[in-house]
């Protein structure tokens, strides 16, 4: 499966937020989509910067969950920047730069999406896109249950989001992800999860020769490959910027056991 080319033209525009929502620690912004964004696909993102006084200097990469006449963006509230964004009010103007990044390929054959709560935007956008295109999709969603085996409400909420796309969803304890992938034996993996999970998925994929893609994350500044802040280590020994991807071959990156990025 070939990686998809990045879009050449990127716009920087100030846009008005129509709706801002926070559900189970996941933020969503609804904006009017500039024409250049309307054809954006799953895996792509925009940099959103708050223009409010006291806001962060840099934009934050937010997943494009839906594009068309309006733009639906999704993000995890993880740091000061996204906490600031989570206080965005309807009517507020934010700076948008995008679309950025390489979309996922969209094969007709079944794809198994592997994800976690920390990377839900990218994987959910792919599940939605495949659902709309009536393409067969299975989701292995990971979480950590408590001692009684009960998953947090936020995890059930996100599983519901995936089920709404028409995908078949399995909720798996992230500590047993390797066994789950081995049992499922997917034909093609599309993943976005923490380094700890991805290291296990990659090991199984290597052993069983399962092809796939993974969406990488790293702190980003410019989004257009200029500042070279968003580097990740790859198995060929290179460090590469990922803002212009961030979808890469599953076999390519180095994933640190227990690491947060993925």
């Amino acid at each position: 499966m070939r990686l998809v080319d990045i879009q050449d033209k990127v716009v920087e525009v100030d846009v008005t937020v129509h709706e801002a929502r926070i559900e189970h620690g996941v933020g969503r912004l609804f904006l009017s989509a500039p024409p250049e964004i309307r054809a954006a696909r799953a895996g792509q993102y925009v940099m959103i910067r708050s223009l409010r006084a006291g806001g962060p200097l840099l934009g934050r990469p937010l997943t494009i969950l839906h594009s068309g006449g309006h733009l639906e963006l999704m993000y995890n509230i993880v740091g000061e920047g996204t906490r600031h964004l989570s206080t965005t009010l309807p009517g507020e103007v934010v700076q948008l730069v995008g679309p950025l990044g390489r979309p996922f390929a969209l094969p007709d054959t079944e794809v198994t999406i592997i994800g976690d709560a920390g990377h839900v935007g990218t994987t959910l956008s792919l599940a939605r896109e495949r659902g709309e295109a009536k393409r067969p999709t299975r989701v292995i969603f990971t979480g950590t249950p408590d001692a009684a085996g009960v998953y947090p409400a936020a995890i059930h909420f996100l599983v519901g989001e995936f089920e709404a796309t028409g995908a078949t969803v399995d909720l798996v304890d992230e500590r047993t992800i390797a066994e789950a992938v081995e049992t499922a034996r997917p034909a093609l993996i599309a993943a976005g999860a923490s380094d700890g999970i991805m290291a296990k998925v990659q090991a199984v994929a290597d052993r069983l020769a399962i092809p796939g893609f993974v969406a990488l994350q790293a702190p980003m500044a410019c989004g257009v490959g200029v500042c070279q802040a968003c580097v990740r280590h790859f198995r060929d020994g290179a460090m590469r910027i990922i803002c212009e991807t961030p979808i890469v071959d599953l076999a390519a990156p180095v994933f640190a056991e227990g690491g947060r990025h993925g």
Partner: peptide
């Protein structure tokens, strides 16, 4: 170049 993280916001600058 240097390993990541390579850039951080601080005091209104980078």
């Amino acid at each position: 170049g240097h390993p990541p993280p390579r850039l951080t916001e601080a005091a209104g600058g980078l």
